[in-house]
């Protein structure tokens, strides 16, 4: 029931990227998000894309994992793309949108009808996928035509709203999509190749200057690593309680709201009890092993800054320099 939740994205593997110092990776991934906004023309975006591709392809992480991390935000990407499409108005205008879309839909229809006539598909495609495609394309066809004909013909309905797409909007939208994909790829790469423990260690190091202001950096880092450590454990416990209550007839998928509330409570109360119990046990275990907050502590794993880390950082500086020089 909770099978599809995956936390702690670390993937086992080994490559030059895995061996980099997590501090460098963390800071540079953040830095990358900042400098990518400096790119504003095709040459800078090309450089950013090639740079990211080079790292991604040599990192030893299979591409499908990047695809998986991009997939959940595809809707967001397209949303920004379309917003951009309609509100960005510089450059030369393209032919009215409805004409383009109508052409595309006619082509899709044509292709599918041709395919249908010539081939017999498997049951699944015949029964579910093809009707779905026809339904969606028809709906889009009707919607676009209604909306756009208003926009084009009846100016009183459309204020100053012209459903005309400008060339720059298309290009800029493309850049936005590219930028989001690059940012997500770089930050996913960080979590794919860095163990959560190393990442918290890196956070601790990066935040350590805050110690001057009496900010409890190492306690914060410990809290983060404990939370990360217990997420899978608590998920497992949730799974168990969920199954136990399902065995008692609780149905978490159906029923009216009142029933649902009771059933959620039957899950929440045990989970609270279990979490508190675990927290208390952990606190006792830590105390028994002499943990005192605020005391100076050594770490099992010492981070080591190697020569490759220098090169890694340098490559980002070079990329920044390239951006500054070539951006328009």
């Amino acid at each position: 029931m909770l099978d599809n939740i995956k936390l702690g994205q670390y993937l086992h593997g080994d490559s030059w990227y895995y061996r980099l110092d997590p501090r460098g990776k963390l800071v540079m991934s953040t830095f990358f998000i900042v400098i990518i906004f400096m790119a504003n023309n095709w040459i800078t975006y090309l450089a950013a894309t090639l740079f990211t591709l080079l790292i991604v392809l040599t990192s030893g992480v299979p591409l499908k994992y990047f695809y998986r991390s991009i997939k959940p935000i595809v809707v967001l990407i397209f949303f920004t793309f379309f917003l951009n499409l309609f509100f960005y108005r510089t450059g030369t205008p393209l032919p009215p949108l409805n004409i383009i879309i109508n052409k595309i839909i006619v082509i899709i229809y044509g292709v599918f009808v041709a395919l249908l006539i010539t081939f017999r598909f498997t049951k699944v495609i015949d029964r579910y996928i093809i009707p779905k495609i026809f339904k969606i394309t028809t709906l889009v066809f009707i919607l676009i035509n209604i909306l756009l004909s208003y926009g084009l013909n009846y100016t009183e309905f459309s204020w100053s709203f012209h459903w005309i797409i400008y060339k720059n909007a298309l290009i800029n939208g493309g850049y936005i999509i590219l930028r989001l994909i690059l940012i997500i790829s770089m930050s996913s790469l960080l979590t794919f190749t860095t163990k959560p423990t190393d990442l918290t260690l890196a956070i601790e190091h990066v935040l350590s200057p805050l110690k001057i202001f009496k900010f409890p950096v190492s306690e914060l880092a410990l809290m983060i690593s404990i939370s990360l450590r217990f997420i899978p454990t608590l998920l497992e416990e949730t799974q168990k309680v969920l199954k136990a209550q399902t065995s008692r007839g609780a149905d978490f998928t159906e029923g009216n709201i009142k029933d649902k509330v009771i059933q959620i409570i039957s899950l929440l109360v045990p989970m609270f009890i279990i979490s508190f119990k675990r927290a208390e046990e952990l606190a006792n275990a830590m105390e028994a092993r002499g943990y005192i907050p605020g005391r100076k502590r050594t770490s099992l794993r010492e981070l080591r800054w190697r020569f490759t880390d220098n090169i890694y950082v340098l490559s980002f500086i070079l990329l920044t320099a390239f951006f500054i020089y070539f951006r328009s």
Partner: peptide, 13 residues
């Protein structure tokens, strides 16, 4: 078919 899980006391709420 009644299923009693391991440590069923955790299902009390």
């Amino acid at each position: 078919v009644g299923l009693v899980f391991q440590f069923p006391e955790y299902q009390l709420f």
